Amino acid sequence: MQNEANDTGSPKPAISILIVSFNTRDVLRECLDSVAVATGNLVVETIVVDNHSRDGSAAMVREEFPWVRVIESTENLGFGRANNLAFAAAHGRYIVLLNSDAFLQRDTLCLSLEKMEADPTVGLASGRLVGRDGELQPSARMFPNPMRQLLVISGLADKYPGSRFFGQADRTWADPMEAAEVDWVPGAYSIIPADILHRYGFFDPRFFLYYEEVDLCLRIQSAGYKIMYWPEICVVHVGGESSRQIKTLEMSQTGAQLVLWRMRSTLLYYRKHKGSTAVAVRWLEEIWYLLRAWRNRLRSGEDARCEVRNQKRLADLMSLAWKETKGGRVSPPQPW
C-alpha cells in the first residue's frame, strides 16, 4: 500500500495524486482501487477533495481507503479551485491530476514518472484516454481559436475527422498511437512537475469549470516547456461515455447549465489571452445558432421544431454569458 507523506520520517512522495469528487462515490471507489494497483513500489500520496458531496463520498473514502487524505469543502469549488486546494497540501515531486471517473492501468504511474524524468523540457503530459469499451476519446488537442470553434460547433469536425483542416481542434487526423507535442490535454489525467506549478501557478480560480486546463497548458507552454501526449500511457475515462447526447431531445435544464458554464469560460479564456477576439467568438456562436434555428424553421415535424427551440436557447445562453462575464472580463460569483 502507499506511504503516508505526513508521517514523521516518511520519504517525500514521488507523486501526489489529486482527485476532485462531487457526488461520484461509486466511480470514486473504482478510481481509488485502480490507484492502489498502479502505485506498485512508488512512494505516492493520494488526496481527495470532496466538493460538498451529498452521497457520502468522503465517509466512504475514510472507511475503505484509510491511506487517502480527504479534504472536505463546505461548498462546490469547481474543478480548478478544488485542485488548487489539494495542490496546497501536496508534497510530491510530481502532481498527477486524476478525475474521479478515470481509472489507472497497472503501469500508468511508473511509465508516466519514467518518461517525465527522462525529459526535463516537458512541463505537462498526458496519455491516451479511452472509454470502458476501448473507444478512443479526444486526448491531444490544439488551442482554441475562432476557426476551430466554428469547425466544432458546425459539426464539420465530426463529419470529416480524417482531415487535417476540419479535424484540427482535436487532432482527429493524427495516428493516436504516435507520441506528439501538442497544445493542451484534458484534465482527466495529466502529470506535471510540482516545481513548475510553484513557479508559474496552478489553475486560474476564475474558471469554475471548463478551459482551466487549456489556460494552464498555455501558461506552461509560454514559459518554454512542452506539452506532451504519450499513447503508451492509457487511462480509462468514463466521462467521455456519459456525456454523449441524443441530438433530437429537448435540452435539459442541467444541459443548459453546463452549456452556460462552458460559454462563460470560453469568454473568460478569450478575453484573458486574445483580448477583443472574445467579441468575435461571442457573435460567431450566436449567429451560428440563429442561422441553425432559421434553417430548421423551413422543415416540418416535431424534431425540427425542437431544434429551433434548442438553437434559439443556445443563442440566448451565449448572450447571457456575455452579460454575466461583462464580455469575458469578470467571473460570476462562485459556485456557478
Results as ranks from 00 to 15, higher is better:
K115M: 12
L216A: 08
P332Y: 08
G167N: 09
H91E: 08
R309H: 11
H91Q: 10
A14D: 07
K274S: 08
W288Y: 15
R164A: 15
N83R: 14
S300Y: 06
A86Y: 07
Y225I: 01
E75Y: 12
V235I: 11
V20Y: 10
P161F: 11
Q105R: 10
L150F: 15
A140W: 02
Q253V: 13
R262Y: 13
G224S: 01
F79A: 13
H237S: 11
N310H: 05
S190Q: 08
E45P: 01
N310V: 06
N310G: 03
E213T: 09
C217Q: 00
V37G: 03
I71S: 04
F65I: 14
K326Q: 12
Q149D: 12
V236Q: 00
A321H: 04
R69V: 07
S276Y: 03
C110V: 14
T254Q: 10
K323I: 14
A82P: 07
Q221V: 00
P66I: 02
A194D: 06
I153S: 13
E307Y: 11
E250Q: 12
K159I: 10
E212F: 11
G155A: 11
H273E: 03
L32E: 03
G255K: 11
A223T: 00
A256T: 06
D55G: 08
E72A: 08
T108M: 10
L32V: 04
R299S: 15
L85Y: 01
L290N: 02
I287H: 03
L260Y: 13
V35H: 00
A86R: 08
F202G: 07
I287Q: 03
A223G: 03
E114L: 14
V27F: 10
E212L: 12
S222W: 04
V70I: 10
E324I: 13
V37T: 15
I227R: 01
T325C: 05
E63V: 01
W261A: 11
Y225S: 02
G80R: 05
I15F: 09
L42F: 03
F143Y: 13
T325W: 05
I19F: 03
Q257V: 15
A321Y: 04
L320N: 03
V43N: 01
T248F: 06
V238Y: 12
E181S: 12
L85E: 08
S319F: 13
S100D: 10
R297D: 06
I191K: 01
S126K: 05
K312M: 15
D133M: 09
L216I: 10
R262N: 13
G275H: 05
E213S: 07
A36L: 13
V27M: 09
P205M: 01
V61A: 00
R305N: 12
V259K: 13
F79S: 09
W67I: 00
I191L: 07
I47K: 02
S252A: 06
T24I: 04
A278K: 03
E181Q: 10
Q253R: 15
L151M: 14
D7Q: 15
P193S: 06
W67Y: 06
F202L: 02
Q253Y: 13
V238W: 09
T46R: 05
V96Q: 04
V68N: 04
I153N: 05
S21G: 11
E286P: 00
Y210F: 15
S331L: 02
T108C: 02
I191W: 06
A58G: 06
G92F: 04
N296L: 01
M147W: 14
P120H: 10
E117H: 11
